[in-house]
Each structure stands twice: as C-alpha cells, then as structure tokens.
Write a protein that binds this DNA or RNA. Structure first.
Lengths: 163, 163
DNA sequence: ACGACAATCTCGTTCGGCGAGATATTATTC
DNA sequence: GAATAATATCTCGCCGAACGAGATTGTCGT
C-alpha cells in the first residue's frame, strides 16, 4: 500500500496464493525440524500420501521427479525415510527394477497430528461456501495447476514454445 | 480414483491446493537451477519482491523469518544473492544495525521472464470469473492464510491443543 | 541368448544451513 | 551521560543434503 495501492484484484489474488505457498512451506519446515527430519522428507511424505490416496503407484523415480531430485538424492531421501521407519521399500512384482514405496501408519499419524488442524480448518471454511462458490474455488485451483503443468514442460529453457 | 473415489468435495479442494504448492515449488527449483541459484534463493527473491510491492521494508532478519532460516543461514543467503548481483545491502539510516535489502532490476526481469506466463495466465483465468466467484476465491485464500498463521504459533509441539 | 535400454543404487564432492559466539548499534536505567 | 541490557547482523566451524558420474541389476526386442 504505497504508490500502486491495489494493482488489480486479479493480481491480489495471485499474491494471496503465493502467500499460501510460502506459509505452507514454513509449516512443513517446522514439522520437519520437530520430528528430526528435513523439509524435503516432509514434502516426500506428502507426495507419497497423495499418491496412495489417488491410487498412483509411487516408485522411487516418480518421487524424485515430484521433488526435483536426481537419482542419487532420491535414493538418499528414501534411505532416510526408511531408516526413520516412515516408509518401506517394496520391489514391484511386475517390473523388478522398480521400487514401490509405502507409507507406514506411524508417519500417517504424525502427519495428521500436525496438518490435521489445517485440513479440518480448510474443510470447515469450505463448508461455509455455497455450491457455486466451491465450484469457483475448484475451478481456480484446477486452472492454476494446469498453468503450472504447462510452464513445466521444457527440460531446458530453449525448447518451450508450444504456441 | 480407486476405492475411496471422491472423499468429500472439500477435501478434494484441499488436495488441489496442495498440488499447487508442490508444483509451484518445482517451478521455483527449475528456475533456480537454470540461473545457477538454489531454491531458497528464489524463494528469497520472491519474498523481497512481495515486500517491495507491499511497501514493507525488507530487513535481513525479516527475510530469514520468512524463509525459516537462522541468522547464519540468512547472512550466507544474502551474500550469495549480493555476489550474484541480484540484490543490494543498504544500511538503514534510522537504525544502523539493520540492513535493508533491495532487489536489482536484473533479478526482476529474470523473475518476470520465468513467472510472467504463470502470473499472466492466472490473471487471465480470473478474468473469466464473475465478481462473486472472484470474491469466493479471495475469501478462500484469505481464510487458508489465516489458518496457516494460526497453526504457526507454537514454539514446540507440546503446547498446541486448542480443541 | 545378446545387446540396447531402463530403474535404482554407490561413491566422492560441493556447499547450504545450523549452533555458538563475536561485533556493532540502539534503548534503558541510574 | 557512562554503564547495562537488548537487538540486528555477521564470523567461524561443522554436518549432511543433493549433485555428477558411473556401477549394478532387471527388462525387452530381435
């Protein structure tokens, strides 16, 4: 609130979204520090839980891609989580090169204890929204996810001009 | 989409939001790698730009708090960004202990080149929303930010049982 | 079976981030 | 208005997360 005051309402919403990502990252870091883990470990657990919920088989390579790690870093991450008893490695029966990851109940409980209030709060918040309002929020988030997926594309900066 | 199919509509929206945070983190990491920086550096620049836009004076300590770093890490971060020519240190005239941080034009251009499409896309997307719909999105994001701020609170795990 | 390919793991190295404490500047107290 | 406390940042030494390169193990087409 200086010169440009409000910019546009649309930009303000974008900044609200960005504030969410920053604050959410902070919460993850706190959770990690409290449980003797690292931010990346927490992000990994979240990805694994989301994958399980979505029915997507979570392999080591997939997890590394989700987090932007190379294979060495991914292996180290999985070692850490395994030693901590948070996840288990299971060789895929179909393709025995692949390693499937399963999240232990302890980790689930731990995560729920920390993020439960946030999730509950969000659900409660959404219950105060009418159907069209919920639909607007859903449409917005879905759209942003699509935009983020688009922007991803290129393996290097030089090769992303779909238009 | 397996057994539990849809859970609740509210939870689905929460997961959409979480997907946004994960994907957004990935984009930041890519941007960092392409410019010889680290994810934290990018997050720092974003915080600094947001602060500038909001008219908030950005000090070293403030930045460290935003990113969850201690003072040593914060100093190292600022050194990196300064050496890279992305930011400049300026001693506060009023309180000469404090160091104010200003983002250089080069960094702004760099960031805009990478995140511009995402921002533009989001603004475009929101333009397709009616006033009540935009208001719904804004209310949702504001509420989530409030929840995240609440959850922050506790310095340790033992003292947060509001229920 | 054989070679091309794919997924994961091992090794050695770099450097981001932490803890502890030093330094410089501003508030407070007598 | 000197002595003291409080605050903001920086320096030093160390740990370990993540990287690059390459080895290992498993799959698939021919």
């Amino acid at each position: 609130m200086r010169e440009e005051a409000e910019e546009t309402a649309e930009l303000e919403i974008f900044h609200l979204l960005r504030a969410v990502t920053v604050a959410y990252g902070l919460r993850q870091g706190e959770f990690a520090a409290r449980n003797g883990m690292h931010p990346t470990d927490v992000r990994a657990l979240i990805c694994l839980l989301d994958a399980e919920r979505a029915g997507t088989p979570a392999t080591a390579g997939w997890l590394g891609a989700q987090l932007g790690l190379n294979s060495a870093g991914t292996t180290a991450l999985i070692d850490r989580l395994e030693h901590g008893g948070h996840i288990a490695r299971v060789r895929d029966a179909r393709d025995r090169r692949r390693v499937l990851l399963t999240v232990g109940d302890g980790a689930k409980r731990l995560g729920w204890a920390h993020f439960g209030p946030l999730i509950d709060g969000t659900v409660e918040l959404l219950r105060t929204f009418g159907p069209e309002e919920q639909e607007a929020v859903r449409r917005f988030l879905t759209g942003v996810n699509a935009l983020l997926a688009d922007t991803a594309a290129g393996p290097d900066d030089t090769a992303e001009h779909p238009a």
